[in-house]
Amino acid sequence: MKNGQKTGRMTWKKGLRSFRFHFFAILFGIIMIYPLVWMVASSLKPNDEVFTTVTSLIPSRFVWQNYVEGWQSTGRYTYATYFSNSLFIAVLSTIGGVASSSLVAYGFARIPFKGRKVFFTILMGTMLLPVQVLMIPQYVIFQKLRWINTYLPIIVPQFCGVPFFIFLNMQFMRGVPRELDEAAEIDGCGWLRTYTNILLPLSKPSLITSSIFAFYWSWQEFLGPLIYLNKPKKYTVSIALKMFADPSVQTNWSGLFAMTTLSIIPVVAVFMFFQKYLVEGVATTGLKA
Protein backbone atom coordinates (compact mmCIF):
# COMPACT_ATOMS: atom_id res chain seq x y z
CA MET A 1 0.00 0.00 0.00
CA LYS A 2 2.58 2.49 1.12
CA ASN A 3 4.93 1.31 -1.57
CA GLY A 4 2.26 1.62 -4.24
CA GLN A 5 1.57 5.20 -3.25
CA LYS A 6 5.25 6.02 -3.42
CA THR A 7 5.77 4.60 -6.90
CA GLY A 8 2.63 6.34 -8.04
CA ARG A 9 3.94 9.66 -6.85
CA MET A 10 7.28 8.91 -8.45
CA THR A 11 5.85 8.13 -11.86
CA TRP A 12 3.74 11.27 -11.60
CA LYS A 13 6.80 13.29 -10.70
CA LYS A 14 8.73 11.66 -13.49
CA GLY A 15 5.94 12.44 -15.90
CA LEU A 16 5.97 16.09 -14.86
CA ARG A 17 9.72 16.25 -15.32
CA SER A 18 9.43 14.65 -18.73
CA PHE A 19 6.69 17.09 -19.69
CA ARG A 20 8.79 20.02 -18.54
CA PHE A 21 11.72 18.72 -20.55
CA HIS A 22 9.75 18.35 -23.73
CA PHE A 23 7.98 21.68 -23.26
CA PHE A 24 11.19 23.66 -23.05
CA ALA A 25 13.01 21.53 -25.60
CA ILE A 26 10.29 22.19 -28.15
CA LEU A 27 10.01 25.88 -27.30
CA PHE A 28 13.74 26.35 -27.69
CA GLY A 29 13.71 24.09 -30.73
CA ILE A 30 11.29 26.37 -32.53
CA ILE A 31 13.70 29.29 -32.18
CA MET A 32 16.53 27.13 -33.42
CA ILE A 33 14.74 25.76 -36.42
CA TYR A 34 12.90 28.90 -37.49
CA PRO A 35 15.42 29.84 -40.23
CA LEU A 36 15.20 26.38 -41.74
CA VAL A 37 11.43 26.53 -41.75
CA TRP A 38 11.60 30.00 -43.28
CA MET A 39 13.93 28.75 -45.98
CA VAL A 40 11.78 25.73 -46.81
CA ALA A 41 8.68 27.93 -46.92
CA SER A 42 10.43 30.43 -49.19
CA SER A 43 11.62 27.63 -51.44
CA LEU A 44 7.98 26.85 -52.17
CA LYS A 45 6.84 30.41 -52.82
CA PRO A 46 6.67 32.01 -56.25
CA ASN A 47 9.96 33.87 -56.69
CA ASP A 48 8.46 37.36 -56.58
CA GLU A 49 6.73 36.56 -53.29
CA VAL A 50 9.85 35.66 -51.35
CA PHE A 51 10.42 39.24 -50.26
CA THR A 52 6.95 40.66 -50.51
CA THR A 53 5.62 38.12 -47.99
CA VAL A 54 8.81 37.77 -46.06
CA THR A 55 7.24 37.21 -42.64
CA SER A 56 4.73 34.65 -43.81
CA LEU A 57 5.63 31.00 -43.49
CA ILE A 58 2.82 29.80 -45.71
CA PRO A 59 3.19 30.23 -49.47
CA SER A 60 0.13 31.62 -51.27
CA ARG A 61 0.48 28.61 -53.53
CA PHE A 62 2.99 25.80 -53.45
CA VAL A 63 5.41 26.04 -56.36
CA TRP A 64 7.07 22.63 -56.51
CA GLN A 65 8.36 23.75 -59.87
CA ASN A 66 11.09 25.65 -57.98
CA TYR A 67 12.61 22.32 -57.11
CA VAL A 68 12.27 20.95 -60.61
CA GLU A 69 13.76 24.03 -62.23
CA GLY A 70 16.43 24.47 -59.58
CA TRP A 71 17.44 20.86 -60.02
CA GLN A 72 17.81 21.35 -63.78
CA SER A 73 20.41 24.08 -63.16
CA THR A 74 21.72 25.33 -66.52
CA GLY A 75 20.41 22.20 -68.20
CA ARG A 76 23.84 20.95 -69.21
CA TYR A 77 24.55 19.34 -65.90
CA THR A 78 21.84 18.96 -63.35
CA TYR A 79 22.12 18.86 -59.60
CA ALA A 80 22.29 15.08 -59.95
CA THR A 81 25.85 15.55 -61.20
CA TYR A 82 26.73 18.05 -58.48
CA PHE A 83 25.27 15.90 -55.72
CA SER A 84 27.09 12.77 -56.81
CA ASN A 85 30.36 14.70 -57.07
CA SER A 86 29.91 16.18 -53.62
CA LEU A 87 28.93 12.84 -52.18
CA PHE A 88 31.96 11.14 -53.68
CA ILE A 89 34.29 13.77 -52.23
CA ALA A 90 32.56 13.84 -48.86
CA VAL A 91 32.49 10.08 -48.32
CA LEU A 92 36.14 9.56 -49.22
CA SER A 93 37.24 12.63 -47.26
CA THR A 94 35.34 11.46 -44.22
CA ILE A 95 36.81 7.97 -44.29
CA GLY A 96 40.30 9.29 -44.90
CA GLY A 97 40.11 12.15 -42.45
CA VAL A 98 38.65 10.19 -39.56
CA ALA A 99 40.81 7.08 -39.94
CA SER A 100 44.13 8.87 -40.31
CA SER A 101 43.35 11.46 -37.64
CA SER A 102 42.62 8.72 -35.12
CA LEU A 103 45.95 7.02 -35.84
CA VAL A 104 47.89 10.24 -35.57
CA ALA A 105 46.02 11.20 -32.43
CA TYR A 106 47.03 7.96 -30.77
CA GLY A 107 50.66 8.62 -31.60
CA PHE A 108 50.48 12.06 -29.98
CA ALA A 109 48.30 11.08 -27.05
CA ARG A 110 49.98 7.91 -25.85
CA ILE A 111 53.44 7.31 -27.25
CA PRO A 112 56.26 9.21 -25.53
CA PHE A 113 58.46 9.70 -28.56
CA LYS A 114 61.20 12.25 -28.99
CA GLY A 115 60.01 15.46 -30.63
CA ARG A 116 56.38 14.91 -29.67
CA LYS A 117 55.96 18.37 -28.15
CA VAL A 118 57.60 20.14 -31.06
CA PHE A 119 55.45 18.39 -33.62
CA PHE A 120 52.31 18.92 -31.59
CA THR A 121 53.08 22.64 -31.48
CA ILE A 122 53.50 22.63 -35.26
CA LEU A 123 50.23 20.75 -35.60
CA MET A 124 48.43 23.46 -33.65
CA GLY A 125 50.30 26.12 -35.61
CA THR A 126 49.01 24.82 -38.94
CA MET A 127 45.48 25.63 -37.81
CA LEU A 128 46.21 29.29 -37.22
CA LEU A 129 46.75 30.66 -40.72
CA PRO A 130 43.72 31.56 -42.85
CA VAL A 131 43.52 29.01 -45.68
CA GLN A 132 43.13 31.80 -48.20
CA VAL A 133 46.74 32.87 -47.96
CA LEU A 134 47.95 29.29 -48.51
CA MET A 135 45.79 28.78 -51.55
CA ILE A 136 48.03 29.96 -54.36
CA PRO A 137 51.22 28.11 -53.33
CA GLN A 138 49.11 25.01 -52.72
CA TYR A 139 47.66 25.33 -56.18
CA VAL A 140 51.14 25.48 -57.66
CA ILE A 141 52.18 22.31 -55.79
CA PHE A 142 49.18 20.36 -57.04
CA GLN A 143 49.70 21.71 -60.52
CA LYS A 144 53.27 20.36 -60.49
CA LEU A 145 51.81 17.01 -59.45
CA ARG A 146 49.40 17.25 -62.39
CA TRP A 147 46.46 16.90 -60.05
CA ILE A 148 44.47 19.87 -61.34
CA ASN A 149 40.95 19.07 -62.46
CA THR A 150 40.90 15.90 -60.36
CA TYR A 151 39.54 15.39 -56.86
CA LEU A 152 42.99 14.43 -55.56
CA PRO A 153 43.96 17.87 -54.16
CA ILE A 154 40.71 17.89 -52.20
CA ILE A 155 40.71 14.32 -50.94
CA VAL A 156 44.32 13.25 -50.51
CA PRO A 157 45.23 15.84 -47.85
CA GLN A 158 42.35 14.47 -45.78
CA PHE A 159 44.12 11.10 -45.70
CA CYS A 160 47.03 12.86 -44.06
CA GLY A 161 44.94 13.68 -41.02
CA VAL A 162 43.02 16.82 -40.10
CA PRO A 163 44.49 18.83 -37.21
CA PHE A 164 41.06 19.51 -35.71
CA PHE A 165 40.20 15.80 -35.55
CA ILE A 166 43.66 14.83 -34.41
CA PHE A 167 43.40 17.21 -31.48
CA LEU A 168 39.83 16.15 -30.76
CA ASN A 169 40.68 12.45 -30.70
CA MET A 170 43.71 13.15 -28.57
CA GLN A 171 41.60 14.83 -25.94
CA PHE A 172 39.25 11.86 -25.81
CA MET A 173 42.06 9.33 -25.69
CA ARG A 174 43.68 11.22 -22.87
CA GLY A 175 40.49 10.71 -20.92
CA VAL A 176 40.75 6.93 -21.19
CA PRO A 177 42.25 5.43 -18.01
CA ARG A 178 45.88 4.49 -18.38
CA GLU A 179 45.29 1.25 -16.50
CA LEU A 180 43.66 -0.14 -19.60
CA ASP A 181 46.78 0.43 -21.71
CA GLU A 182 48.95 -1.00 -18.99
CA ALA A 183 46.75 -4.06 -18.67
CA ALA A 184 46.97 -4.58 -22.42
CA GLU A 185 50.71 -4.18 -22.28
CA ILE A 186 50.99 -6.79 -19.57
CA ASP A 187 48.98 -9.07 -21.82
CA GLY A 188 51.76 -8.59 -24.36
CA CYS A 189 50.08 -6.12 -26.67
CA GLY A 190 52.33 -3.78 -28.64
CA TRP A 191 51.43 -0.18 -29.47
CA LEU A 192 49.38 -1.19 -32.47
CA ARG A 193 47.38 -3.84 -30.65
CA THR A 194 46.77 -1.52 -27.73
CA TYR A 195 45.45 1.00 -30.22
CA THR A 196 43.17 -1.35 -32.11
CA ASN A 197 41.96 -3.28 -29.06
CA ILE A 198 41.65 -0.58 -26.40
CA LEU A 199 41.89 3.03 -27.56
CA LEU A 200 40.09 2.73 -30.88
CA PRO A 201 36.89 1.18 -29.47
CA LEU A 202 36.97 3.49 -26.46
CA SER A 203 37.25 6.63 -28.54
CA LYS A 204 34.05 5.83 -30.38
CA PRO A 205 32.32 9.07 -29.31
CA SER A 206 35.08 11.17 -30.80
CA LEU A 207 35.15 9.06 -33.95
CA ILE A 208 31.43 9.63 -34.38
CA THR A 209 31.78 13.33 -33.76
CA SER A 210 34.69 13.53 -36.19
CA SER A 211 32.69 11.69 -38.85
CA ILE A 212 29.78 14.10 -38.53
CA PHE A 213 32.06 17.12 -38.82
CA ALA A 214 34.24 15.62 -41.56
CA PHE A 215 31.25 14.90 -43.70
CA TYR A 216 29.72 18.32 -43.20
CA TRP A 217 32.95 20.22 -43.78
CA SER A 218 33.86 18.44 -46.96
CA TRP A 219 30.27 18.69 -48.13
CA GLN A 220 30.24 22.46 -47.82
CA GLU A 221 33.92 22.94 -48.67
CA PHE A 222 34.06 25.55 -51.33
CA LEU A 223 37.49 27.02 -51.92
CA GLY A 224 39.18 23.71 -52.80
CA PRO A 225 36.65 22.64 -55.43
CA LEU A 226 36.62 26.17 -56.83
CA ILE A 227 40.31 26.40 -57.50
CA TYR A 228 41.14 22.79 -58.34
CA LEU A 229 38.22 21.83 -60.57
CA ASN A 230 37.86 23.28 -64.05
CA LYS A 231 35.15 21.31 -65.76
CA PRO A 232 31.51 21.95 -64.90
CA LYS A 233 31.03 18.17 -65.00
CA LYS A 234 33.14 17.98 -61.85
CA TYR A 235 31.59 20.88 -59.94
CA THR A 236 30.22 20.32 -56.47
CA VAL A 237 26.95 21.45 -54.93
CA SER A 238 28.76 24.23 -53.07
CA ILE A 239 29.99 25.75 -56.34
CA ALA A 240 26.64 25.37 -58.06
CA LEU A 241 24.74 27.07 -55.21
CA LYS A 242 26.86 30.18 -55.53
CA MET A 243 25.69 30.66 -59.09
CA PHE A 244 22.14 31.52 -58.13
CA ALA A 245 22.87 34.96 -56.76
CA ASP A 246 23.59 37.63 -59.31
CA PRO A 247 24.25 41.24 -58.48
CA SER A 248 23.09 42.59 -61.82
CA VAL A 249 19.96 40.61 -62.67
CA GLN A 250 17.08 39.27 -60.65
CA THR A 251 18.06 36.33 -58.49
CA ASN A 252 16.05 33.13 -58.52
CA TRP A 253 15.69 33.15 -54.74
CA SER A 254 13.15 30.39 -54.43
CA GLY A 255 15.30 28.16 -56.63
CA LEU A 256 18.30 28.98 -54.47
CA PHE A 257 16.39 28.11 -51.31
CA ALA A 258 15.03 24.93 -52.87
CA MET A 259 18.51 23.68 -53.72
CA THR A 260 19.96 24.84 -50.38
CA THR A 261 17.22 22.86 -48.66
CA LEU A 262 18.07 19.75 -50.66
CA SER A 263 21.76 20.29 -50.07
CA ILE A 264 21.45 20.04 -46.29
CA ILE A 265 19.49 16.79 -46.40
CA PRO A 266 22.55 14.53 -46.72
CA VAL A 267 24.24 16.38 -43.89
CA VAL A 268 21.23 16.10 -41.61
CA ALA A 269 20.88 12.42 -42.52
CA VAL A 270 24.51 11.76 -41.63
CA PHE A 271 24.03 13.59 -38.36
CA MET A 272 20.89 11.69 -37.42
CA PHE A 273 22.48 8.39 -38.34
CA PHE A 274 25.68 8.89 -36.39
CA GLN A 275 24.32 10.63 -33.31
CA LYS A 276 22.34 7.48 -32.44
CA TYR A 277 25.61 5.84 -31.57
CA LEU A 278 26.43 8.50 -29.03
CA VAL A 279 25.49 6.29 -26.10
CA GLU A 280 27.23 5.56 -22.84
CA GLY A 281 30.53 3.79 -23.25
CA VAL A 282 30.10 0.50 -21.36
CA ALA A 283 33.57 -0.94 -21.72
CA THR A 284 35.10 1.02 -18.90
CA THR A 285 32.53 0.09 -16.31
CA GLY A 286 33.83 -1.88 -13.40
CA LEU A 287 37.45 -1.07 -14.05
CA LYS A 288 37.93 1.88 -11.77
CA ALA A 289 35.74 3.15 -8.97
Binding site: N149, T150, L152, I155, M243, F244, D246, Q250
Partner: peptide
Protein backbone atom coordinates in the same frame (compact mmCIF):
# COMPACT_ATOMS: atom_id res chain seq x y z
CA UNK B 1 41.72 2.53 -57.51
CA UNK B 2 39.07 5.20 -57.93
CA UNK B 3 41.57 8.01 -57.54
CA UNK B 4 43.89 6.50 -60.10
CA UNK B 5 41.14 6.20 -62.65
CA UNK B 6 40.21 9.81 -62.01
CA UNK B 7 43.63 11.21 -62.71
CA UNK B 8 43.96 9.13 -65.85
CA UNK B 9 40.80 10.67 -67.23
CA UNK B 10 42.33 14.14 -67.04
CA UNK B 11 44.51 13.59 -70.08
CA UNK B 12 42.62 14.11 -73.31
CA UNK B 13 42.44 16.27 -76.42
CA UNK B 14 42.54 20.02 -75.88
CA UNK B 15 39.47 21.99 -76.94
CA UNK B 16 39.31 25.76 -76.56
CA UNK B 17 38.88 26.73 -72.91
CA UNK B 18 36.39 29.49 -72.36
CA UNK B 19 35.63 31.16 -69.06
CA UNK B 20 33.02 33.62 -67.80
CA UNK B 21 31.32 34.75 -64.64
CA UNK B 22 27.60 34.55 -64.25
CA UNK B 23 24.56 33.33 -62.43
CA UNK B 24 22.29 30.54 -63.59
CA UNK B 25 20.45 32.91 -65.90
CA UNK B 26 23.61 34.38 -67.44
CA UNK B 27 25.06 30.90 -67.77
CA UNK B 28 22.10 29.97 -69.89
Amino acid sequence: AMLLSLSAAALADEPMRMCWWGSESSNK
